[in-house]
Simulated assay, not measured.
Amino acid sequence: MNPPVRDFVGYGRRPPVVRWPGDARVAVSIVVNYEEGSERSFDRDGVNEGLGEVPRRVDAPYRDLATESVYEYGSRAGVHRLLRLFARYDVATTFFAAAEALERNPEVCAALRDSGHEVCAHGWRWTEEWTLDVDAQRAAIERAVRSIEATCGQRPVGWYSRWMPSVDTRRLLVEEGGFRYDSNAYNDDLPYFVQVGDAPFLVVPYSLTFNDSRHTYGQLTSASDFFDECRRGFDYLWEEGDHTPRMLSIGVHPRLIGQPSRTSALRDFIDHVLTKGGAWFARRRDIAETWWNQHPTLVRD
């Protein structure tokens, strides 16, 4: 079934030159992972979700009410704090959204419909696709598309799996026919094409480096750590962008970055980018369309 082939070369010494809108040096893609309400829970799955504010899991037969409430904070308070911040700065973002999480919070769906942010499918539920058989994956993709169309009024054109896809995911996305990209890779600073069967398909890589999930693992201990990591990444890419424009992915979660102190770090980063200039705050679908339009011949074998 043509499983993915590892590529250690990429663009090498000759990365392609793209012209971002406004001749920006860096396309900054802020991604909000909206998963609250679709995570594992004891009442439905017989196991508790293991990723909360601390990296631990409460085992059955005990229900983890603490972690459940952390996720509820994200959907009740954190996500709206982020939406207010983006509106204040007129910043366009992409929501990696689990379809079920959207169904459980019509307020968020209404805000997304009104705001113009992109909704990228993050699964039907926030589940590990590599544990599902092909038919179950196909059904979950179709169900996620229908659900997001109904709740948010837009058909998702991008896909991002929880942590990693299965070896079949990309083929199933191409088979579905309506996806323009996925973000199921962490291996580059620029989009790139892959060949899936007879069709080219675009990968818009994501990042676990510039990501607030590192608070969960103790790798970032303060809001200032997150700001410094993102600022340094942007500044370095900005310097490189003098010759070859770059892309920076920033990953955040309402239950984490939505806490006031951490939101202030994201605010300071946006301030820094706007003050420095030369950046394009972009939805991933717009990055993908720019790449499709400017580099349609870069399909790799």
Rank of each mutant, 00 (worst) to 15 (best):
G278K: 08
T297F: 14
T127A: 08
V174F: 04
S207V: 08
T221M: 06
R284N: 02
T151H: 12
D45C: 12
Y160F: 14
L220A: 08
R6G: 03
F42N: 05
D45W: 10
T209L: 13
L220W: 14
D271Q: 14
S183Y: 11
S161H: 01
T244V: 15
D286P: 02
V32E: 13
E100F: 13
S161R: 07
C230I: 04
R113H: 07
V145K: 01
T275Y: 13
R283G: 09
R285Q: 13
G123R: 10
P156R: 01
Y62M: 08
V167A: 15
N211T: 04
E289W: 09
N211H: 00
V145S: 09
W126H: 15
V28Q: 06
E36Y: 00
T290L: 14
W126A: 03
W291Q: 07
A140V: 05
T221V: 06
H80L: 09
S161V: 03
L202S: 00
H215E: 10
N187H: 04
L65K: 01
E129H: 08
R283C: 00
W159L: 04
R6S: 11
R262A: 09
T216W: 02
Y11M: 00
Q294C: 14
F179E: 14
R285I: 13
R232D: 14
A121D: 10
E149K: 05
G22R: 09
D301G: 08
I141P: 02
G197K: 12
A121N: 04
W163R: 15
E72S: 09
D114K: 02
D286Y: 06
E142K: 14
Q195D: 04
E240P: 12
V196R: 05
N293F: 10
V203Q: 02
L83T: 01
S213M: 11
P61A: 06
F210Q: 10
R138D: 10
V167R: 15
T297V: 14
G10Q: 09
F269G: 02
S213L: 00
F269T: 11
L266D: 07
V167W: 02
V91T: 08
E103Q: 06
Q259R: 12
Y217T: 15
D235L: 14
P21S: 12
E175F: 09
R171K: 09
R146S: 15
A279E: 10
D271C: 13
R170F: 05
V5A: 07
E53S: 05
D235W: 07
N211Q: 08
A265M: 14
I257N: 09
V145W: 07
D114A: 15
R162H: 03
F193C: 04
F226M: 03
S249H: 11
F234H: 04
E289Q: 15
R56N: 13
D182W: 14
P165R: 11
R143W: 06
G277K: 11
S261A: 15
W126N: 12
H80T: 02
H80N: 14
V28A: 11
P296E: 06
